[in-house]
Each structure stands twice: as C-alpha cells, then as structure tokens.
Simulated assay, not measured.
Amino acid sequence: MIARPQSPARTVDVISIAALAMAEILAMSLWFMASVLLPEMRAEAPLSVWQAGALATSVQAGFVLGALGLAMLGLADRLDPRRIFAGSALLAAAANAAMVLLAADHSGQIVLRALVGAALAGVYPVGMKIAVGWTTARRGTMVGLLIGALTVGSAASHLIAFGGGHGWRTPTLMASGLAVMAAGLMAAVRLGPHHQRAPGFSFGVLALAWRDRRLRLAYAGYLGHMWELYAFWAWIGSVLALSLAEGHARLTAFAAIALGGLACLPAGGLADRIGKAQVARAAMLISALAGVATAASLGGPAALTILAAMVWGASVIPDSAQFSALVADAAPAARAGSLMTLQTAIGFLFAALSVQLLPLIAAALGWSAALLVLVPGPLLGAVAMTRLIALQRDPAAE
C-alpha cells in the first residue's frame, strides 16, 4: 500500500506534504483526549488528582519509551518511515479505542494511554524525518508546517470533545477513527530527494548529541521549551474553566492551541531568512512573558485571561520546529531521524514531569503559582539559543 514509486523530482511534492500534514493532524488528535474528557470521566467515576494527572502523564511516559526504542534501534533511519508512521497510527487508534471497554477509573486506562503515547512516537518524530527529506534550504518552513499540523491535531481533541455529545466514549472512538484515516493517508506520501537510509545502527551516533556543541545546545533549548509546552496544552482548558463555562473554555482552549499551530508556518519562513535559533529565542521570550501574564490575570476579568492565554498559545509552539530543524542541520543526513527521535524522547520526559507536577501544585497553591513554575523553562531555553547564535557566528566561540 505504501511502497509507491519514487520520483526523481527535486521540488517539494505538494500532495505528499499535504497528506503528511493531514495525517499528523488526524493521528495527534489522540494525544489529549483523556485530559480533555476528564469532566465526563469524573461524572462516571471519582478520579483522584493523581489519577487525573496520570492519565495525561502516561501518554508522555509511553512516548518517551517508544521514542527511545526507535532511537536506540535506529528504525526511522533504517526502515521505510511511512510504514512506521502508518503502523504506529493504527496501534495508537486501537489502544485509544480499547479505553471505552473499561470503567473511567480503571487502572487499565493509564496503561492504555501509555500505549497510545508509545505508538505516537512512531508518528511525530518519524513525520519530521519524512519532512526534512524534501529540502535542506527551507527546513525551518518544512518542519514548521509539520509542527503546525501536530499542534492543530493536539488542539482538535478539544473540538472533538465539544462536538462529541455527552459522555466520554463517543469522542474517544471518534479520535480513534481519525487516527485510522491518518494511517490510510500515508499511501499518498512519497519520500523526498534528500531522504537517506542508514545501512545499520551504531550507538556512537547517539553520542553525537553530547559531543557536537550545536546539537547539545539545540537539545538544551528543546528541553526548556518542552518544560512548558505540554503542561500548557494539557491544563490550559482547566485554567480557562475557572473563568468560563465548560463549553466556552473548550472552544477557547482549542483556539489558543490552534493559533500556535497557525503561527508555525510563518515562523518557519522567518527562520529560514534570519536564523532558526533567533526565531526560537524570540518565541521563548514572548512565551515566558505570556505565561507570567496568564498567571497574573487569574481572578481578574475573564477577557484578560483569554487574551494572555491566546498570546501564550501562539508563542509556545513555533520554536519547536526550529529545534528539530537545528538538529537536522547539524546531524549526518542518514542519522537525522535517530537524533531527532532521541531529542523528542528526552524532551517528552521533561514534559511528563511538568504535566504531572502542575495539577498537584495547583491543588496546593492555586493555578497562578502552578503556571509560574513553567516560566523558567523558556527562559533557560532562550539562554541556550543565545549561546548557539554566538557559536554560529564564531565557531571557535566558547
């Protein structure tokens, strides 16, 4: 189904990229379904604060394990990434659909969400491997498009929950159906002229992430970015629910997250012109300020909270594509998939910590204090990008 003949064309295949982006949107709609549907799940069974956090964190934990496995085996560099993407989307759809067979508070729900995360490790970083194979000069734009698709897909869970009627099972099955469609779309995707397969795997490749200063700084910036990103995505709906009715909070959360997805493409184009590290640094500084503003706005007029959350949502994700593009630029072409997969694995480990930590802090100190915990992440990431910019201008620096 997927082994479609390659074309020798050197230009970007619009159909392939469009199909890849749409597949990313549909598959990644699975990511936040449990977090978004917590009110409906709690209406069926009394979930504790720990269980609620674990339903969100288990996806990240599963993703970390899945991504580490892919990186250690070098599968994204050795096998056809389209087959990995399609098979992973189907596995994620099956694990997500199986949730409807269990009670809302059954411990198996956490295991199934972890399986969803592990399977999505074959979707997100593998999709980036396919995308960077189409260009070297416009990688900021290309990866920005894919990260934008991922963001819209992550936001889609709020929209599915809003339109899925009462209860949590129907929206859950709807999201699984979209992931199945994502697997089918991979039949329309070709590999680009810059795609390379590795002849075998070497653990020494992963050591490049530490030995190469460019890679090390790109990883460091990504870790700061991931400290805030998924915690914001997972809990912004709960924050907005303090000021808005449930339906309005979901629509606003969708809009805030999706706005960031729309910002990824122009940010990528700007990065290709002025520099990836420069755009990443600017986005993180704006994101840190928006995080402080959102925390300070809680308890005040709802319009201020919505505005601050919108700015935060628009600025929290455009830098993500640039970290991946920076790794692709610095990595050997045949090993870019493994190094980008390792980058996402470590980043999602950080994300799992902040996602789990945030509701616990909110329960003890309130959401304003919890949101401020996220701010150091982008600030430290901006410091890493400042050092990378200096290194790019003078390779002998530091």
Rank of each mutant, 00 (worst) to 15 (best):
K276V: 05
A384N: 06
A288M: 04
A328M: 05
I147V: 15
G204M: 06
V355W: 07
R78H: 11
P378I: 02
L265V: 15
R250C: 00
M385I: 00
L185D: 04
T341I: 09
F32R: 03
G140Q: 10
A43K: 06
F32H: 06
Q356L: 15
A188F: 14
A34C: 02
V14W: 08
Q51P: 07
G66A: 12
A302T: 10
A18Q: 08
G74N: 07
D319Y: 02
V189L: 14
A234P: 01
F162T: 05
P376L: 03
V123H: 10
L150G: 12
M41Q: 14
A352N: 09
S315V: 11
A86Q: 11
A382Q: 02
E246K: 00
L380I: 05
L374Y: 00
H248Q: 15
M142C: 09
R82A: 13
Q356G: 10
H248M: 12
L326Y: 09
V239E: 00
A67N: 11
V143S: 12
G164K: 02
T170Y: 12
Q392E: 11
A328D: 10
A121D: 08
A267V: 10
A98Q: 04
G366R: 03
Q196S: 02
L73A: 15
V279S: 14
V355R: 06
I236T: 03
P318H: 13
L150Y: 12
A325S: 13
R42S: 07
L47S: 05
M186A: 10
L240H: 01
L145M: 15
A94M: 13
I160W: 00
G224A: 01
L304P: 07
L90R: 05
L38A: 08
V12F: 08
A98F: 11
Y219G: 07
A23W: 09
M33G: 01
S176I: 05
L150V: 14
L101D: 04
A397W: 14
V152C: 12
P332H: 03
G167E: 09
G300R: 07
I160C: 04
P199F: 06
P125S: 13
A103I: 00
A277Y: 06
H166P: 01
L26C: 06
L90K: 09
L178E: 04
G313V: 05
G133R: 13
A119K: 10
L38G: 01
V316E: 03
A121I: 07
A277L: 05
M28V: 15
P301C: 11
L185R: 05
L391Q: 07
A183G: 15
A104Y: 06
L380H: 03
G224S: 05
V180M: 14
D272H: 13
S243Y: 06
L146Y: 15
A54D: 06
R281P: 02
L70V: 14
L298G: 00
V383D: 00
A198Y: 05
W235K: 00
L146K: 10
G163P: 04
I17F: 11
G133C: 11
G313Q: 11
M22Y: 07
W50M: 13
H106D: 12
T136P: 05
A9P: 06
R214M: 08
P46N: 10
L120Q: 06
R393M: 11
A19V: 07
A209V: 13
I286N: 02
A333F: 01
G377C: 01
D105K: 03
R393D: 12
L91D: 10
P5Q: 10
A18R: 10
A161P: 07
V205P: 03
G237N: 00
M142T: 13
I236F: 01
